[in-house]
């Protein structure tokens, strides 16, 4: 009976420690939520980086008028971000040298081949 009484104490302490630790963790994780609201500087700077890169790397012949240039750079930034996300890498490892519109419904083989090419040249 004595051991059982000690066991009851162990149960109280045990459940207490488990609950308090996990509760403390849950409050700490609440702070994470606050942190995640602030956009990470890396993400914030991405479009800027790519605007710069795109401007440097765009073939001369493909430059258009100034008003359209900004739109194009934004498109390149978006394309770069999407490709980086799909390859599971970061945008600083990618160089968009040129781009062109392709058929909206490529065959599965073409799409797979294109993805493979992008992946191989990104590392």
């Amino acid at each position: 009976m004595n051991e059982f009484t000690i066991g009851l104490g162990t149960t109280l302490i045990g459940m207490g420690v488990v609950s308090i630790t996990l509760l403390a963790l849950s409050f700490i994780l609440d702070l994470f939520k606050v942190c995640s609201v602030i956009p990470s500087p890396k993400i914030q700077s991405l479009p800027e980086q790519h605007k710069e890169k795109a401007m440097v790397e765009m073939p001369q012949g493909e430059h258009m008028e100034t008003s359209e240039e900004l739109d194009e750079l934004q498109i390149i930034a978006v394309i770069t971000a999407v490709i980086a996300a799909s390859l599971g890498t970061t945008t600083d490892k990618l160089h968009i040298q040129s781009y062109k519109r392709v058929s909206p419904n490529p065959s599965g083989w073409n799409a797979a081949g294109r993805r493979e090419n992008m992946k191989n040249s990104s590392y």
Binding site: E3, F4, G7, L8, T10, T11, G14, M15, V18, S19, L22, L23, L25, S26, F27, L29, D30, F32, K33
Partner: peptide
Amino acid sequence: PRSIILGAAAQFGIFFSFLGALL
């Protein structure tokens, strides 16, 4: 984060059986 508390509640089975085994 609140779902973490459910992970604590489910540990009661450990201590319940611990007491049962002592008995």
